[in-house]
Design a protein around this nucleic acid. Structure first.
Lengths: 286, 286
DNA sequence: CTCCAGCTAGACCACTAGTATAAAAATTGA
DNA sequence: TCAATTTTTATACTAGTGGTCTAGCTGGAG
């Protein structure tokens, strides 16, 4: 990322935390970072766009940390899960984004809204996957429901903690508590009970791969040298929307894309996610 | 309430739903209701104040309905509870305030924030009380926790329903689902398990009576004729903050206040709430 | 009739996000 | 090193915001 852009993001970030998004004017940012208006609008097409960049940065940060802490540990380690959830909340807290993240609906700008939606949904999916790691694949049917319950308890507990300004519970206490409740439900759930969110419906198509792809394409399309890459990516995007994407084709395209090493972080990230996707689907069809 | 004020509230309400709070300008409201700017600021000191008035109105509406539907039915009727929760969500939906209500943190104006806090907290308290009606007073210890869990599951499920734009679940389905999960937890909860929010701490002092009192005092203090009333109310406010308020005194003051029939809705509402408070505490000490 | 609260129209203020432009400065490539 | 290109700057501008203020109008009560 450009150095100046990073400066702006960091400055804006500081101010958003300090004074809140609404009450931070562009002018404030300009004064803080000591740049001219033109420069700001060189990097962001709007104030909202700037916020999105900050949010994206925060998400990447916590995801990176989650991956790192999972190295060399078992996927069914409850403590690992708790730590991973903690890390997200901590970065959210550090970035003071809890509120924004949990709301979405107040957002006026549709693009910002959409972005928050995706963020949120992908978190639910992550939790659902992790719950299956923890408590076995029998959970599959209700994994998504339990993820929703877990996050619901979590979020609401935090809210009420704030409301009553109780300070006697740590982040971890509350996470542990939420997990305990969910475990209890899982253990005593009868087979026949209602399922609100069937897993399959949400597993594919609406996952985070597609929007990521879209964004990458938009970025690359400006560069004429990337024309052939864009073509491949666009094919992938279309293919993944199908009922049953042709895995062989996707894998082939993936290999082609992997051969050239682009110095773009989102490009490499993309390849990694794609690889995960291929693996997962290969496993489930076998 | 003044006729013109009602007109403004209704017009503003319509616009807030249609275009959202942020994107409705004062000018829009003026055009909609066909009034001059001066008139608007005659009734509301700010746009925020106007929003608060709308929210208050919505809350009163749903509380009224909740009371009405409880007439002649047992307090431990699960169906009644479900209907009562439904009615709140429906009016919230009708007023499109779900989002606002559940968030709070994004609000810039501290007064608005405080208001939302109170709204939210009082809802949690209401649910906690009702859960005890349903499942017995043994629940007391964990009633507040379970209320938080219930509302958490509820809110989050709604959010995810929106996210995934699933339409196959009705309001009632989701409420029933949330209650089912909570019931499951209650049935299998061991005695020794963690309690996040001890009931006693939240039962008194921070209930809705105090802020209501404060607001009423602020209103009456402008009227010199009400000076003696204000004195009594201020005594009540102070007394209720004590560890164990002297019920006899409070009841005595209540009788005095009841003798003069003020034509103010909030005044009568106040008396009603105070009476409920006295009854409840009388019962629990007996 | 007078009086006056409530209403109106509209000027005005300081502020907002975002655009436009021309000149200056920094970076780049040869 | 020098010329070309890109980035940055300063500043003026637009159209809109929430909110204040004033001068004058109007309908109804006494």
């Amino acid at each position: 990322m450009n150095k100046k852009k990073k400066q702006i993001i960091e400055g804006a970030h500081r101010l958003f935390i300090e004074k809140g998004f609404v009450h931070t004017s562009i002018q404030d940012i300009l004064d803080e970072v000591k740049i001219a208006k033109g420069t700001f609008y060189n990097y962001f097409i709007s104030k909202n766009e700037c916020l999105i960049a900050i949010l994206e940065y925060a998400k990447e940060e916590s995801e990176q940390q989650r991956k790192e802490m999972s190295l060399g540990r078992r996927a069914d380690d409850e403590e690992l899960f708790i730590e991973q959830v903690t890390i997200r909340l901590k970065t959210d807290k550090k970035h003071n984004l809890m509120a924004l993240f949990s709301t979405t609906s107040f957002m006026s700008d549709p693009e910002l809204r959409e972005f928050m939606f995706q963020q949120h949904l992908s978190e639910v999916q992550w939790v659902a996957g992790r719950l299956m790691d923890l408590y076995g694949d029998d959970l599959r049917e209700i994994a998504f429901d339990q993820a929703v319950i877990f996050l619901g308890i979590l979020q609401h507990s935090f809210q009420v903690t704030k409301l009553t300004s109780q300070k006697n519970h740590s982040l971890e206490d509350i996470i542990r508590y939420a997990l305990q409740q969910v475990r209890l439900i899982i253990q005593h759930q009868e087979q026949s009970s209602t399922v609100l969110f069937p897993f399959e419906r949400l597993e594919r198509g609406e996952n985070e791969l597609s929007p990521q792809l879209k964004k990458l394409i938009e970025k690359l399309i400006q560069n004429p040298k990337m024309k052939d890459k864009v073509e491949l990516l666009e094919f992938l995007l279309a293919e993944m929307k199908n009922e049953s994407p042709r895995l062989q084709l996707i894998e082939s395209v993936w290999r082609t894309l992997s051969q050239s090493h682009e110095p773009l972080a989102p490009y490499r990230e993309m390849l990694y996610m794609l690889w995960e996707y291929i693996e997962k689907n290969n496993a489930s069809r076998r």
